[in-house]
Structures are given as structure tokens and as C-alpha cells.
Design a protein around this nucleic acid. Structure first.
Lengths: 110, 110
DNA sequence: CTGTATCCTGGGCGATACTG
DNA sequence: CAGTATCGCCCAGGATACAG
């Protein structure tokens, strides 16, 4: 995995922050620390299993901090690391592009 | 597909320009028009089938122009539409982030 | 509430062969 | 050269049940 030769650094970004859920997770964490259930509600349509797996991957890549509070009921808070926060410009660019794209498509349909 | 309600415009960008190959295709097309085989060599590891499918999808979303020259041997050239070119900042941000990420990871390993 | 543990399915994708 | 046409594998991810 580490020895993989990349032709283009874009691939690295895709591996670390790409896929169906990771960009969304990061995007929502950009606005602050979130609990597990909060994230699940915000994202919508993601199963517990998938959200857990994606969060663990983000954690292992140093993108996300996971803090467990020894309480009942349990509380787990996720937040972006400094490294994770460096993705902000990219994610914002993606959101703005998506908004712009939708606007264009709507304008064309008439 | 069109009626799908998005919680966040980031999802739109992922659908139109996300996945394993599309960002790479767009990224390489940013530096100019490319022939099919050229793209395949640049990207590396993508099969004809997958490249074809991804290019068709990009075309259907208005991201890519496909021009067929009636020659023997055949020549097909792909280029970004104006809309496709609007992804440039995002793609560049992704590449730069990937480079930065690799540099950090290397620095940490010592 | 925040997870694991199983089971299962779709479809993304590669491998391969063939064609205009 | 730039594709189609098939086939088949794999595994991401959903559904569900259970646990600390």
C-alpha cells in the first residue's frame, strides 16, 4: 500500500478521502466536532456499519480524531485532525462546483 | 436520477466526477486534448472497457467532447468542455493535497 | 448510543476475445 | 486504433441481529 507507485498525486487524495462517504464525512466535520449518530443523520442513507468502517479508515490515515467518553449512554465524538482540516479548500471547491453544476443543468432544461 | 434529493452538493460532484478513474481522466485532459490510447497509457492500469465506460459517462454529463476522425487507422480525440474545465481548481487542489500528504507521511516515518 | 458480527447481493471492474 | 461483447470474480456496502 505504501509502496504503490502513483502516476499522479490525485490518486492519493482519492484513496485517502475519496469514495462514496468519506468526502461527506469530512465535509460535515469541517463545521465542527460531531457525535456518531449526528453524523449518521446528517449524511443520511449510510448504515452504521459503513459509517464505522469509513471513520476507522479516516482515523488510520490521520484525518480524524476519535474520542470516547466513558459514560452511560456512551458518547463518541469525531473531529478533524489538523491534517484533515487541510482538505477544507478541496471540499468547499467540490461543494461549490456541485451547486454550480446543478444550477447550469436546471437553466438548460427550459 | 434527476429527482434524487441531495443533502449536500458534494454528492453531485462525486457522482459526476468521482470514482476511481474520472478524476484522473479529467486531470489529464486538463493539459490538453488526448487520444484514447494516450489516455490509457497516461492513466495506467485501466482497461479499455473501463476507460470507454467512464468516458461515455463524462460525455453524457457534458464534461467531455468526443471527436471521431474518419480515418484509417481510426483516431478519436477527447477534450474537456467548458463545463469540464471548471473542475480545474478542484482537481489541482486534489493533486496538491496528495503531494502534501505524501510529503508529510514520509517526514513522519523517520 | 455506539458500535460488532453475520450474511448476502449487486454491480463495478478486470480478463479475454473479437471487430470495423 | 478504438472500441464492443461476454464472462465471471470480488468485495463494498446494505440488512439485520446482537452487545457493551
Amino acid at each position: 500500500m505504501n509502496m504503490k507507485a502513483y502516476r499522479c498525486a490525485v490518486e492519493v487524495t482519492i484513496e485517502v478521502a475519496g469514495g462514496k462517504w468519506k468526502p461527506l464525512i469530512i465535509h460535515y466535520l469541517l463545521s465542527g466536532t460531531k457525535r456518531f449518530g449526528e453524523l449518521q443523520r446528517l449524511i443520511g442513507g449510510v448504515t452504521q456499519r459503513s459509517l464505522t468502517l469509513q471513520l476507522r479508515e479516516l482515523e488510520s490515515h490521520g484525518m480524524v480524531n476519535r474520542v470516547v467518553y466513558a459514560e452511560v449512554p456512551p458518547r463518541v465524538e469525531y473531529s478533524l485532525t489538523e491534517l484533515g482540516r487541510t482538505l477544507a479548500p478541496t471540499l468547499v471547491a467540490m461543494r461549490e462546483w456541485g451547486e454550480n453544476y446543478m444550477a447550469r443543468r436546471e437553466a438548460e432544461q427550459q
